[in-house]
Amino acid sequence: MTTPQTVMIRKTPVAYAQQALKPKMGELNGMEVALEFEGASVENARKQLLGVTDVSCFQRFSVKGPQAAAWLAAKGMNTPAAINSWDDAAPGTMILRLGGSEFLLEDQHSGDTCALLAKGFKQAEVAGVYKVQRADAAFILSGSEALDLLSELCMLDLRDSALGANAVVMTQVAGISATLLRQTLNGQQVYRIWCDGTYGPYMWDMLMEVAKELGGGAVGLSCHFKK
């Protein structure tokens, strides 16, 4: 047996769609990620107008089941009381309550909350809690034209008056199932979108197609998160 000793770096689910753009790649949480596409000045401006950023590399942990909320609370996580809402589970980690009894935690940029929870979860020991293996493609959509883009790809009313600050919506974006919310990132209101990773390249292509028409485009991870 010849197990390599080095930890294998995973590819982001949207790598296939990004390859033609030849972004500057880096690694975060064991996953390759596009750090920069066209340079800071272009992307900083784009971020304000309409930017699409791949954040699939963020760490996630998800459980469901009748005892999921209780189990998370026992692990010291703050869980949202309302269905389909989100909150901070712990500093730097957001938690989405998907429906009644499913929870998705995501470390924002880096952190080890999700890894620790995963490590501490032993299926056989907890009744009524089931781990949900996930492989999301995840995106940040930023800029003044983000709502315009979404008004083409999503049929829901996503104006601030309709989409609560802590609301989570499971809906369709570009015709496929996706989870969507708004969030404030470095003082800027942005939208977050998650979809199944196998749809990631498609979702990236659709977001880019519309973003480009509206004067926006790809924004690297570095533009939002200075390491």
Binding site: Q19, E152, D196, T198, G200, P201, M206, E209
Partner: peptide
């Protein structure tokens, strides 16, 4: 309009 022709790829597609 812009029709949504969604498709799924495995991570080995490339």
């Amino acid at each position: 309009g812009r029709s949504f022709h969604s498709h799924r790829l495995t991570s080995i597609h490339a």
